[in-house]
């Protein structure tokens, strides 16, 4: 009986703690948006962060995109061939990439490459009192450190996702057309007939923007909220990758349900 009460109490404490943290995170996110003015007035602050979140993620995004596309080409060909419709390879590769794999896989890679870096960086700045020092110099760390990182990463994400999809389609083309010999004209024309700019491409871009906001907000909050110790920062970094991956997949389901319903 006592044990039961205790575990109930434990669950209750967890839930309350979780809700409280959500509240703190939401407030932090709103503060970040409110304090964004300075970042846009001094745009070089954002450019720096586009460099570290976007440009430094280029290699992993381009290479992964190419390989994912090549695998799609191979697997898709194997399957389509049994129905005698290998000309539809372009459709399969492009729709999977533009609607799903581009935004989702790029965001997952982004979370583990740029998201974890953001958390570690901010957590370390906090642990080494750099944020407190900034505050003592009458500079708001949310405006000077957090907001530029937010916008830099949010701007980078859709660019990375588009590059991932484009690379993937090239990968599928390489394997399907160049290597296996699917008819080139059919590959492209069927693709163009099936892929709609608004329905597919624009929705994919919207997805990647939403994922970018989610990953970056989580990464920034985890870093800002991390206990100021080496252990605290390393745990926060892990949590960023886990939480944002789950958030990406959950949001993807919701967005897909809204966007591609009935088409």
């Amino acid at each position: 009986m006592n044990n039961l009460l205790n575990s109930l109490r434990g669950i209750g404490a967890h839930v309350i703690d979780g809700i409280w943290r959500m509240g703190v995170a939401t407030r932090f996110f709103l503060m970040t948006l409110l304090q964004s003015g300075q970042s846009f007035r001094r745009f070089h602050l954002i450019i720096r962060e586009i460099f570290s979140a976007g440009v430094l993620s280029l290699i992993i995004i381009l290479v992964s995109g190419l390989f994912v596309g090549m695998v799609l080409g191979l697997q898709g060909y194997e399957t389509l061939q049994t129905y005698g419709s290998e000309e539809a390879l372009g459709v399969l590769v492009s729709l999977s990439l533009v609607r799903e794999l581009g935004p989702v896989v790029a965001a997952l890679l982004f979370a583990s490459r740029a998201g974890s870096a953001i958390t570690a960086e901010i957590g370390l700045m906090k642990a080494t009192e750099q944020l407190a020092a900034m505050e003592m110099m009458a500079v708001d760390p949310v405006a000077r450190v957090v907001a530029p990182r937010f916008w830099g990463a949010v701007i980078s994400m859709p660019i990375l996702a588009a590059l991932f999809s484009a690379m993937g389609i090239l990968g599928g083309y390489l394997v399907g057309v160049v290597l296996i010999g699917v008819d080139e004209g059919a590959f492209w024309s069927q693709m163009q007939a099936a892929v709609d700019f608004r329905e597919d491409i624009l929705n994919g871009v919207i997805k990647s923007v939403v994922f970018g906001v989610a990953v970056t907000a989580i990464a920034l909050f985890e870093g800002y909220d991390a206990p100021p110790t080496a252990e605290g920062v390393s745990r926060a970094t892990t949590r960023t990758v886990v939480t944002s991956s789950l958030a990406i997949l959950g949001l993807d389901f919701i967005l897909t349900a809204f966007m591609f319903r009935g088409v």
């Binding site: 370390l124 080494t128 407190a132 003592m136």
Partner: peptide
């Protein structure tokens, strides 16, 4: 303010 370990921006 001078922090204990300097707190320089790394």
């Amino acid at each position: 303010m001078l922090f204990q370990f300097g707190a320089l921006f790394t």
